[in-house]
Design a binder for these strands. Structure first.
Lengths: 172, 172
DNA sequence: TATTGTTATACTCTATAACTATA
DNA sequence: TATAGTTATAGAGTATAACAATA
């Protein structure tokens, strides 16, 4: 799980072109220069680090990242519907059903009729749900602060802003 | 799949605290302010955008992101072992077996004995593998450039650098 | 004894089709 | 007819245990 990278990657050029020579040489240091130019590779690697630390620190709450996302959205948007949760988080409706049911069985969220749409159901946090969500949010913020302390405060703000520019105002 | 966000998120504060009041009001605009402060949330959302475009543009090559990663690493590190690929990409050995076998069946990579370790097997690109990998790498670079053009060139370099600072020199 | 590569397998995550009830 | 929520199910991704061959 520990990638032994160390090269300061820049461009995807590789001057040393070998002519299919079967020279039996072992690879010592792995050259990841091209991959490190890819946004997808870098975001995935960064996410792996964050999600691993998340799993460790949030274990006492028994909440996955997606669980905290749902609880946080329900807490800040009382009466939000499953459909709105799906659209906001990029989850497909069938995959949200079990998630919400589990949180309801744990007594963290409750369902109530939607004001003017008999098909929809509004979601709310219970008192216990609000308490646990608040504590979990504080833990998550601290957790991410500990990771982001490798960056200067201005760099932290910049990173979030640039990531948001990548995925916001975009549908495909 | 299209998240209708629009708020300029900053801090996880929410002044409007409701006392468990069952006021039946529908949610119009979803407040994602807290989630947008989380590095994990932002990296995942950005990755979803990149991976979706990747899937579209790379369809002609029938390569997933992880396939291109393997081909690129084998191309730049002739004789690299499965174990080294796993360590570099964060893949578990059992999950790499089928991946490498598939690329071998497609005639893109070949196996050769390791110079001084009878257990290990060195991986190499075939002529066809090198051709396809080169073309796929150029397509991937263009694809990501098109996504990153929402950012200024200096911002693009900054984003990659900050992401790398998050996941590099880290094992847990 | 430790490591490489492998098989088998289980668990999670994600995606599609189809149904119901409301609009 | 279109949408919200749901069920069933299939597929992809990820995880552990255990084995043979080699170090």
């Amino acid at each position: 799980m520990a990638p032994p990278n160390g090269s300061a990657a820049q461009a995807p050029r590789r001057p040393r072109a070998r002519k299919a020579a079967p020279a039996p040489a072992a690879v010592e240091q792995v050259d990841t220069s091209f991959l490190e130019t890819l946004l997808g590779y870098n975001t995935r690697r960064a996410w792996l680090v964050v999600s691993e630390v998340f799993q460790q620190r949030m274990a006492p709450f028994a909440l996955r990242p997606v669980d905290l996302s749902v609880l946080s959205l329900v807490g800040r948007n009382p009466g939000i519907t499953s459909r709105q949760l799906c659209a906001t988080l990029g989850i497909l409706p069938p995959n949200l059903v079990g998630l919400v049911s589990a949180l309801e069985k744990r007594g963290l969220i409750s369902r109530s009729p939607h004001p003017h749409d008999g098909r929809a159901v509004g979601l709310h946090l219970t008192a216990e749900g609000a308490r646990l969500t608040g504590e979990a949010e504080r833990t998550a913020s601290q957790l991410e602060a500990d990771i982001a302390n490798r960056l200067a405060p201005s760099e932290q703000r910049t990173l979030l802003r640039l990531l948001q520019k990548i995925y916001q105002r975009d549908g495909s």
